[in-house]
């Protein structure tokens, strides 16, 4: 019995020391991690809808969706698109919609800028796990990605791939990713339209 007690004590002691050290490291790193996350969201937001307000003021005001009673899942060309959040640009230029949907490999999170005239002002992918060299190009900072995303500027909620008779050129070898990005853009515009009634 004595032996078991000793073993437990040793294990507990080591766990406690490790947990303590981790706590200390966490205190140091928590600030930078949070700062990075906020910074990243803001950056993605300002990519799709730049806001001109005096420095230091809040640029995007989150819209509380609950009292609106709208369904946050939009069916767009047969694909389900989840609306995660909507923020209003502080200078009334429009809205930024955060969408979540499945791409070819996994979940994609994308922000879509929607103007007051219900056209898209830009899209930016913040999280994805698409295939490198194919679907991942949709999020890439290289020309191929920028050109793909720029096609969405100015489109309406009826946006479609060229294959379906629309205006968007799909990424080569990544029709599924391209189609889901197109659907999500349409869904974001649709949601803002419903929201504005």
């Amino acid at each position: 019995m004595n032996k078991i007690l000793k073993l437990t004590l040793v294990l507990f002691l080591i766990c406690a020391i490790v947990a303590g050290v981790l706590g200390a490291v966490d205190m140091v790193t928590r600030g930078p991690i949070n700062a990075y996350q906020t910074n990243k969201t803001n950056e993605a937001f300002s990519k799709v809808m730049p806001v001109h307000v005096p420095e230091g003021e809040q640029q995007y005001i989150p819209v509380d969706l609950k009292p609106l009673g709208l369904s946050t899942t939009i069916n767009s060309n047969g694909q389900k698109i989840k609306i995660l959040s909507v923020s209003k640009a502080a200078d009334d230029a429009g809205y930024v919609v955060e969408t979540e949907f499945s791409g070819a490999q996994g979940t994609i999170v994308m922000v879509v800028g929607v103007s007051n005239r219900l056209t898209c002002t830009g899209v930016s992918i913040t999280k994805h796990s698409e295939t490198a060299g194919l679907g991942a190009n949709a999020a890439s900072a290289a020309d191929v990605g920028v050109n793909f995303r720029n096609q969405f500027i100015g489109v309406s909620k009826f946006v479609q791939l060229k294959k379906a008779g629309g205006e968007i050129d799909a990424l080569s070898g990544a029709t599924i990713t391209s189609r889901s990005v197109t659907n999500a853009t349409a869904a974001a515009i649709e949601f803002v339209e419903q929201m504005l009634g």
Partner: peptide
């Protein structure tokens, strides 16, 4: 944690 904070 260090990577998340300094090389995100």
């Amino acid at each position: 944690l260090l990577l998340q904070a300094f090389i995100p």
